[in-house]
Structure formats: C-alpha cells, structure tokens
Design a protein around this nucleic acid. Structure first.
Lengths: 253, 253
DNA sequence: CAGTGGTCTAGACCACCGG
DNA sequence: CGGTGGTCTAGACCACTGT
C-alpha cells in the first residue's frame, strides 16, 4: 500500500506521463484496490486526480485495455477485468528467454554451422530472389537444465558479410542477442506455424526418446521492423517437455 | 486506381474519420502506390492533404503500424513495411469460421451433450468455486468437406439456465453464434496451450487414422469482455489435416 | 539547422446509458 | 436528464535524424 494519497505523475520524469500513469493504475489493479467488475473513476475524474489531460488518461487506459486488465462500456464506465492466468503471452521470445521464463536453465549443443545453398522452401520463406545467394544454416540441440528439449534448425540470409561462427554462437548462446550485437539487427515480429509430428531415428537419438514419440513442430519466419525476413527456423520439441501458449483476441472491426 | 486526387474523408459518415483514413491509406499500400521501405508523407503533410488534425492522422497510422503495414522511425519518417504473407492471424475464431477461411466446408457430428459434474481441472479452468455446480459438456466430431478433422470436447458453466440442446446445436453449427443468440454472451478473448500427442484407440477410430498417429492437442479457455471464463475446450486435430498459425510480436516496453 | 515522429494540453461535440 | 466513453481540433514543446 502506498498510503491514502494517489501516487503522482512526474512531469520531469524521463518516462512519458501516460506510461507512468499506466503503471500507477496497473499497481492499483494488481494490489486489488479495485476489484474485478468494479468500475474505476471516470476519465474526467482521473483528469482531476492526476492533473493530466484526458488524452493522456485515455492513452494510459488504452494500454491497460489492450492488455486485458480493463474493459470499457460505452455510456457506463471503465471496469476491472478478471485476472488472466498468464497475461498476454503471444510475445516473440528467444529460446533463452523462453526457458528462463519457464524456470529452466537454457543450454545448447551446436550440431552444425555452415553456409549452404538454400532449398526452394527456404528461399521462399526468406524472400530471396536469386538461387545463388548462400544462407547460413545453424543446427542446434536445445537443452533445459541440461536435458534435451528440442532441435532448432535456423536459416539466415547472412553469408555475404562475415558470417557468424560456431565459436561466437557458443559464447553468446542467444542468436537474437548476437544478431543485435554483430549486425545491429533487431527482430520485431514473426509468423509461426505449429503442427504435430513424430520422431524419426536421428531425432529420437538426439532427444533421448524413442522413435515415433510425439513432437511439436514449429516453423517460424522472423522479420525486422520493416517486415524484411531475417530468419527461418524449424523447431522440433519433445511433447513431454514443451507446451506452447498463446493469447488470442476476437477481431473488433 | 482512383485518379490523381486523394480520396476524401467524409465528416458526416457514420464511420470515424480515423477509420476512413486508415482504409484510404491501406488501399494505397495494397495497391502499391507506396512501395515497401518507401516513406509516406509526413504527419503534417497528411494533415494538409486530408484536412484532419494530426491526432486523427496519428490514430489512423497507429492502427496500420500495429497491424504491420507501416513502421515509424523517430526523426526520419513513416515507412511502408514488406507485405506479410498472412496479415495478423492471432485472431480468435470458431471452428466454423476457421474452416471457411481455410477453404473447407465445416461440418460436425455431435457425440454427446450432457450436464456433468466437473473435474477439478475443469473447475479450475472455469474459475468455479463450488464443486456442486454442474457444467454442460458437448463433445463433437469436427468435419472439413465431410472428412474428420478433429474432436472438440467443450465445457460450459451453463447448466442452471435452460441448457443448450443437441438439437439447437445441430441447427446452429457454431457454438459461439449460439451463445450470442441464446444468452447474449460475446466471447472476447482466450488463452490456448498447444502440445503434440498421439491417437488412442477411440480417437483413431473417430478420426479414421491409425492408433499412434500424431495429433495436435489444443486446450482453450475463452473469456467474456470482463475476463470471466465462459468456455473450456480440449481440441484434438489430425496432424495431416490441421496446422496452426500465429503471429508474434516483440515486446516493446 | 529544418523536418520528422512522440508527447501533451484544454477545450469541444457526439452517442450511449442509466435513472 | 446528467454522466459515461468515443471522436476530434488546433495548437504546443520535445527528442531525434539528417545535412
């Protein structure tokens, strides 16, 4: 609890007012000061309370609505939503981040790092025009707490500049971090497809399971802010060690 | 092409100006009037061109940015993004909508409609307090072009009021449409988990596959606008007939 | 430096909801 | 009817980018 006085918005903070306000309101929701299905103060009241304009209030509320913490009803008010078990989890993460979030220590065994000639499938996924352009292929066994969890097969259109070496990758661990550090490339979003499959002989051996065991197959095309494809990955996960979570919302046109 | 003159924003339209403007700009992007990585007019220029305030311009641009059609670079401008193959597909849909979008005719065979006593797992998913409250269970074989695609096992906290009958469901087809029509309940969002599994004897028979074939298992908790759980579903899909698509974006705090 | 997007204000009118 | 959220305006200052 922070006392009976509302936390203030600091005009001189480096953070925007709407962002500070979002955090203040979020705190109230998570602390239970406002209960689910209860209405929060109206936008005009919030203007008074925090001494910022209604535009700024609404920008803060927009964020909390989009994250599912609040919902609005036209002519009635703004209300606290029931808490979700896992708040908005359709976020793009690296395997490293993903494992940490699941409470496991990420690890890897590099199986291959090489420049290869891309198949038609890879070229199409990466929007490569010429079939002579080489792509970097990185195949890794992925570990969680030193046990095999999955196999990642990554293709990157990065063989012209000085390509990533197995050594760099081993030191860094996270490919996304390496792309950022070495080429100043920031992955912004991705499309994924998921399907179910079963392990063949090699996969079974690598993953320490028996042939025919169920695997989750995920294919991902990652993109830069501009939408330019920067990565194609095939990921195979042991069904008993990996579940995938998504948050979906209904289209509101 | 719509001629050299910019399409106008109609102040008297039922649609908001920012929404009309979004559509106008989207059209220009999709028609290729503006090419990928090309900058569009600045926000001040757009103000002039369309005769609306910068706030309205920005609201239209915000939508296109969030949908991945545009991206902004502070101090440089706003740019057209590379076209995504499938624009933003992390939308919650009913099986009926889903199949139609995949170009198949949806169908179903109802296997069970009954009020049952919920297991602990179901109660927890639906946030039910008492263990005496009954839930409606609906089990259906789902068809695409008359061929089995998956099995849906749905649990709804709706046994007190007059429950849905097999007959109503058979006539309606879509459960979401029925919830809307019969109880005025609108599903707003959902959390899903996905994993890989293999078919047991009964599943194999229902789906016309052999035992041990890979299946995609999806569990979903659907919620109303308020966040109140309204549905728990276990969905099993034939791996050879069903792929799942998601769009992910990187968190930008 | 001028031009860009990012934030913010103090107003205004509208559509919707409840009593 | 008064109060709510939804839209919109015409300004303003800031931080960042390029030249």
């Amino acid at each position: 609890m922070t006392g009976p006085f509302p936390q203030r918005v600091d005009a001189f903070s480096a953070l925007p007012k709407y962002y500070q306000l979002k955090d203040i309101l979020l705190r109230k929701i998570e602390d239970g000061d406002w209960q689910p299905e209860e209405s929060i103060p109206s936008e005009r009241e919030l203007e008074e309370i925090y001494g910022v304009s209604r535009t700024t209030i609404r920008k803060a509320l927009d964020i909390l609505v989009s994250k599912g913490y609040l919902y609005r009803e036209h002519g009635r008010g703004t209300f606290v939503a029931f808490p979700r078990l896992q708040q908005s989890l359709h976020t793009l993460t690296s395997f490293t981040e993903d494992m940490r979030r699941r409470g496991m220590e990420p690890g890897q065994r590099i199986l291959m790092v090489d420049c290869i000639q891309p198949s038609r499938r890879i070229r199409q996924a990466l929007s490569l025009r010429s079939d002579i352009e080489l792509v970097l292929r990185v195949e890794r066994l992925r570990l969680g707490n030193d046990e095999p969890v999955g196999i990642h097969d990554v293709y990157l259109p990065l063989c012209d500049k000085d390509p990533i070496t197995a050594d760099e990758l081993a030191r860094s661990g996270s490919l996304y971090a390496l792309l950022q550090a070495k080429y100043n490339l920031t992955v912004a979003d991705a499309d994924e497809s998921l399907e179910s499959t079963v392990a063949d002989e090699r996969e079974a051996e690598l993953l320490h399971i028996s042939q025919g065991s169920p695997l989750l197959l995920i294919e991902r095309i990652s993109r830069l802010e501009s939408g330019r494809p920067i990565e194609f990955v095939r990921m195979l996960y042991r069904a008993d060690r990996y579940k995938y979570y998504v948050h979906l919302s209904r289209d509101t046109p």
